[in-house]
Every structure is written in C-alpha cells, then in structure tokens.
Design a protein around this nucleic acid. Sequence first.
DNA 1: CATGAATGAGCCTTCATTCAT
DNA 2: CATGAATGAAGGCTCATTCAT
Lengths: 212, 212, 212, 212
Amino acid sequence: MALTTVDGLSSEPTNRVARRRNQKVHDILNATANVLAERGYHETSLDEIAERLDLTKASLYHYFPSKEALVTACLESVGKLVTERLAETAANRKGSASERLTALIVVQLDSIIREHPQMARLFLQPLDWPEPYRERTKLLRQQHDEVFRTVIREGVANGEFGVIDEAVAVHCLHGAMNYVPVWFRPTRKKDYEEMYMTVAASLLRLFRSTPA
Amino acid sequence: MALTTVDGLSSEPTNRVARRRNQKVHDILNATANVLAERGYHETSLDEIAERLDLTKASLYHYFPSKEALVTACLESVGKLVTERLAETAANRKGSASERLTALIVVQLDSIIREHPQMARLFLQPLDWPEPYRERTKLLRQQHDEVFRTVIREGVANGEFGVIDEAVAVHCLHGAMNYVPVWFRPTRKKDYEEMYMTVAASLLRLFRSTPA
Amino acid sequence: MALTTVDGLSSEPTNRVARRRNQKVHDILNATANVLAERGYHETSLDEIAERLDLTKASLYHYFPSKEALVTACLESVGKLVTERLAETAANRKGSASERLTALIVVQLDSIIREHPQMARLFLQPLDWPEPYRERTKLLRQQHDEVFRTVIREGVANGEFGVIDEAVAVHCLHGAMNYVPVWFRPTRKKDYEEMYMTVAASLLRLFRSTPA
Amino acid sequence: MALTTVDGLSSEPTNRVARRRNQKVHDILNATANVLAERGYHETSLDEIAERLDLTKASLYHYFPSKEALVTACLESVGKLVTERLAETAANRKGSASERLTALIVVQLDSIIREHPQMARLFLQPLDWPEPYRERTKLLRQQHDEVFRTVIREGVANGEFGVIDEAVAVHCLHGAMNYVPVWFRPTRKKDYEEMYMTVAASLLRLFRSTPA
DNA sequence: CATGAATGAGCCTTCATTCAT
DNA sequence: CATGAATGAAGGCTCATTCAT
C-alpha cells in the first residue's frame, strides 16, 4: 500500500544537517503511518517500523523520545494534512452548501480509505487507544470537525440546510463517514467514486432542509 | 459423572454444582465485559479479570480454555442480549415505521452507552481486534443489522421511507449510532433520554421519504 | 494401543472393599502404563490418565500420594511382570544356552515392542527421567539383567559361550535390545517374528565362544 | 562438568562486531549443550541457560528466535562435530577393517561420554523429544550411521566381516554404544580407556566373520 | 470416596526502553 | 549518529497439588 507522505515539516532548514534530520524525521513518520495503517496501533512495534527504514529500533530514539511521542507526531502530522486538504476544499466558496459539503465528504472518504487508512482508525476507534493518546486526538478531531461545521453553518444560514441539533448532526456525519472503511470492499477502481457519491448523497439528507 | 442411585432419591447435588458453575461462568463473563469496556481488548489481561473476581489467572482456565474463548464467549453473550432486546422492540408491530425505527435506535443507544459499553467497541472497532475475533464478530454484527433492515424495508414498502441505497443507508446509521459513545458525555441523568431522541430524530432523516 | 494389564497385585483381598480398591489401583496402573507408552513421561499428565479412567485428577490422589508415586508403582509393576515372564522362560532348562538365550531375547523384544512399549523408554532412557526415578529404575534393571546373566553364565560354564567381560557383554546386549523400538517399523505382522530372530541371531554372536 | 566447545563456527568474522556476536553465539550454544547434558531436554529452561551466561532470558532472544531454534542449533552443531570427528577417523585407511571399526567405536564412546554427554541423549532417546525435533535429529543420526556403515561394508567386502543383516547389526552396534553412559561410572581416569577397549572388543564380535 | 474448585510456581515469548561503543 | 546488546516487566498458558463439600 503506497501512502502519500505524512508530516507537515515545511519550515526551511537552516543548514544541511538540519535538512537531513528533517528528511529522516519525515521518513520515519511516513513509515510509522504505513505500519499503523496496516497493522493497527496494538500490532505496531518499533521493530517493524525500524525494519522498514533499514534502521535499528535504537536509532528511532534519536528522533523521538518514546513510542508515544512517535505515534503522536505521526497522528498529528497526518491529521494536519487531512485537515488542510479539507480546509482547501472548504475554502472554495463556489457552489451551494450542498455541493460544498458533498465535496468535503468525498475528500474525507478518499483520505481515510485510500490516502491515510490509519486515520480511520484514529477517528473511529479512539476508545481502543491507550489513555495518553485520547486527549491529543480529541483536539485533532475537533479541528477536523470545524471545517465541516463551517460549511454546514453557512448552509443553515442561507436556508439550504436545516438541522435539529447541529452538534449531533455533525457527530452523526462523522460516525457514518469514518465507519465506511469497516464495510467497504471495492472490487474495481471505479467502485470508489461511485461509493463516495452514494454515501455523500445519503448523508446530505442529514442536513438538507425539509419543506414545511 | 452420575452414579446409579440405589435408592429413589434423585440426585440433586449435581444440579446444585451445575448451578454454582453457571453462576461462576456468569460472574466471569460479567467481569470480562467490564474490563473489556473499561480498558479495551488490548489492555485487558487475564490477571485483571481474575483480580476483580478474587481469583487467580489459573482459575479462569477451569472455565475457559483460553483468553480467546473467554472473550468470544463474552462478546457472544452480550451480543445475544443486545440483539434480543432489539428484536423484541422490533416485534412490536404497532406504530409507523418511523416510530419503530426510533424505538430501535433508542434501544441500541441505551445498550451501548449504559448497559454494555463494551459493545460499542465491538460494533465500531473490529479493525483493531486480532484476526480470530473478526470473523465471529462479523456474524454478530450481521444478525444485529438484520433487525434494523427489516423495519427499514417495511418503511420503504409502505412509502414511509425512501432511500438511495439501502445497504449504504444502514451502514451510515450504524456508524453514526455506534460513534455516539465517543463524543457523548452526560452530566445529568436526563441527558441520556434527550440525546437518544435527538440522535434518533436526526438519523431518521436518512430514511424518511422526501416529497417530490 | 491395547496393552495387557500391568500390576502384579495378587494377594487375595481380605474383603470386598479391599478388593474394589485393588481393582481400581489395577485400572489406574494400567491407564498410566498406556499413557506413558503413548506419550512418554514428559508428555504424561495426570489429567490425561484421569480422563481415560473417567475419573478426576483429584481422585487419583486417593490411591497414590503423588505423580511420582503413581509412575513409580506403574514402572515397578510393569517391570515385575516383564521380569517374571523372562524368569519363566529362563526356568525352562531344556535346550542349549544359545537356544535359551535366544528365547529370552525374543521374549524381551516382544515385551518392549508389543506388550509394554513404555518399558523401552524406561530401560533405554533413564537419563531423561527426573532424578527421583533413576535410582528406583536402576534396581529394576538389575533384576532384569540377572535373568540374562544366569543363562549366560551357564553357557560360559559349559563352554558354549565365551565372553571377554561378562558385565560389558550383558550391557551391550541390553543397549542393543532396547534400542530396537527406535528403529523398527513393522509393516506386516510377520515382520515382528522375523526381526526378533534376526536380532537374536546377531546378538548371540556377542556370546558364542569363538574357536581358538 | 566441563564440556568442549560446541559450535562449528569457523568462517572468520568480517569485523569485530560480528566476531563478538559469533563468540556469544558460541558461548550460548555451549551453555545450552551443558544444561541439556545435565538436565535433559525437558528439564532445560531458558532461565537456567541464561543464568549460566549471566544473561536474562530475554537476551537469548537476540540470538535465537525460540527455544526450539536454540536447541536445534545446539544439536546440529554438536552433531556435526561428532560426525566430523568420526569421519576423520574413518578416513584414515590404514589398518584392517577391525582396527578401523575399533577406532570408530572408541571415538564415539569418548564423544558421548566425555566430550558431549548430551549427544547420548540425542542418539539414544529420540522417543522422548517433542515432535519438532525428531525429524531433524533423524537426519543427524543417519549421517552419523553412514560413517560406521562404510567401514563395515569394506570389512564385509574383503571377507574380514560377515553379518547376517547389515542394517540390524549396525542398529545393534548403535544401541549398545549409546547405552554405555547409562551404566558406566568411572572411578579412575584410566577406567575410560579400558572400558573403551573392552566394549569395542565385545562389539566387534557382532561383525567378525566366523569360520565355517 | 469422589469431585469441582482453586492455586502457586514455572515456562516461553514479546516489547519498549536504556546504554556503551 | 547509529547500533548491537541487554533487560525488566508483562502476558498467556500448563500442571501437580490441596481442600472443602
């Protein structure tokens, strides 16, 4: 499974040494994301991450002080990426709220199914992660939520959407979207797009205003 | 092993012994469910289960041949309970499909939030469980799904409901419902009922037929 | 694998209770011998012995105070049986020493291969048994040896046999005989008799006096 | 009990790290061989091996992935050593077949009694080892056998030896030789050599051709 | 007598973490 | 920087043995 890169490192390194280090950190986060996606948190061992990088376990400790720090950094980096991609989509103000929400849903589904499968685990299954991670991932989820909330509020404001309880509706949207990887098994490449649209159309009904 | 009794006295002791054993099995499954709910599968150790029962780890092996067997029995026992409760609710044919689906959602939410918090993990998070459990829990989820599907089909048949894709809609319903424990934090007892109704009302929109 | 009975209990029990107990002890020793023969000492658990008797592990402790006592009793009982059978054979004074030694070898081979396979383990592999057994089995081996020694001495006395060192020759005989179960794999029933005779003929060469 | 070294590592290590590792592996195999020889397979625990090396059990897993792998490596390394020593002896074509077979027997006895007592267990007692080992040790025994067979065949070819059944005779030879550690208890150093010669002389009678 | 229950000690194995080189 | 080595803590499982009923 080829995943896109994962960390958000961007600030230009001051010198070659720092650049090298940043590159390495980037590689490590990438490998971590892959293992996390394939095996799930509890089956992820430092040994496996190190092996994929042709490194030793001990070397990982030069870049991250603990497994927790490594995994947290990985989650935050992936989370940031996904949220940014969503934010870009939301920033395009063209089209109706429905169209824009549909676009967000499609982006989210593509993220957690094809780009960053580990995120589905993160969003969906925080209960199964060890305590230390829960607080941190909560923040990630909130930022992520915010993007959806904005579009939904605009839809409500212009009468296109109508919800009983905004917070609840957003949570339901979230639960439904992140549950997709559990049941979706594509056989053809085309299946992805079809499923994205079907799911989006279904979920839009949570928000569309109903005629009096 | 029953010895042939010479006198006419029926052998009650065997019965009492069996009852005792059943009680103990029941207690063990209960303790297991609790630990599972509190810690999640991967943090659940036989030692902790045993400790809560004032037993040693080894004693658990008198009742279950392995951790896998114990957890599986626990899941199936709770799963059966939940599904039965749902089935009872569905069996009550009074009211519209909407009313009955609402009732199902409320029962399900109450089950996974108050009665059997460990079930949320089961329904929501199969990806993070070790391989041997996935197949078995899949069956449980399917039986569970079936109850909802039946009511939804009836709603569709009588024109009350209209869906784009039944399977997708049911999956979305499930994802949304089982995600509730992740975000819901009640402060007052009354909160539960309110939330149940709000969530149910929101999710019904996934199914209600929209006017042409 | 059906083995013949194993203990040497014979002294007439004084009453019915004692007779019952003796019968039970007899059964237990038999079952133990079977499990020992099939699994070897280290794979033999009290649970398996008990199961074959439709008893519980705890019940075995009514008859033997420990696993060690049970196994020891079993070994001694089987050992006695085998030695007695050998002694009977040796007691028949007809024939040359060669003929009589051949008969002993055949009896011994039949004992450890068909009748009491567990004995082969005992005679051959005392090194792998826990310390407490070694001393006790040593005595058994000596008694067993004695039967062979007697016939061999007679052969030496009448000039039929000639050995360099009697003790060494007897040990060699023993090692060779008890090693047979390791390499012998019969395909037809007839194979047994053929092998017995071939082995006996080969081993007799250890003793037959050589012409000057 | 002091044993000679045990592994066959010879290819010069490329660097100091590799050399260190090889040395450690060598030490571990040695310690394993010692414990195996003293306690037998079933009483051999990783803890005891580790303790003799001033290591923890976990450290052993840096060198061998399992107990089975460790023991197997140990057996193969010792087996190779013994077989090589025998092969060297057999390669010396000087002398009659009798003389050469005598030399082989002496080497074998010295190997299993003084050099590698654990080997006696291996050759003698495969029945008591867990299944996974049996196949592997079978091969070792066959290679080992082959050396003896070659010399015996030569003796037969030149009329010096005459056997009823070659395979049976070789098996008897093996059984007798490997049984020696069970009964031999030396009191003086000189005893070893005396016993070697006595046993060899006795066993040669299994093969020497008898005058018509 | 017989048994179900309970246990303590022991075993193999895994893994995040530390440290000297 | 990188690594091989080492480890402590923990986990699942087995089994001979004890004991109250």
